[in-house]
């Protein structure tokens, strides 16, 4: 019976995290913040996976997926941050607008 009460909250949280993530990706120009926004989006997805496992009556499935995603996502974050470091080194800035040289 717990699941019924908590589910709306979880779903609301998923939407919030996703919304925040996408909104941040649309407006923020700082590269570190962009990586953080990506993390927020993926956290929303994690929550959704766990909740889905619960809903389908297969908690293990949800959790094992979530764990895998955490690993994979960390790798992406590390690569992203590493690139950010290099970009700071070469451009002297993390501002997306001022590193945008490739266009048209």
């Amino acid at each position: 019976m717990n699941s019924i009460e908590i589910l709306p909250v979880v779903i609301a949280a998923v939407f919030c995290l996703l919304g925040i993530g996408i909104y941040a990706l649309l407006v923020t120009r700082n590269l570190i913040k962009v990586v953080v926004a990506l993390q927020i989006m993926v956290k929303g997805a994690l929550l959704a996976l766990v909740a889905a496992g619960r809903l389908a009556g297969n908690v293990d499935l949800g959790q094992s997926m979530a764990l895998t995603v955490i690993v994979a996502d960390t790798i992406v974050a590390v690569v992203g941050l590493a690139l950010a470091v290099q970009i700071r080194r070469h451009f002297g800035t993390l501002d997306l607008k001022s590193i945008a040289t490739l266009r048209k």
Partner: peptide, 17 residues
């Protein structure tokens, strides 16, 4: 049309959204 390839990440994400 080339104006739409802004090169700005925010606009790229906008295309996705």
């Amino acid at each position: 049309l080339r104006a739409f390839q802004t090169g700005q990440l925010n606009w790229n994400i906008f295309g996705l959204a």
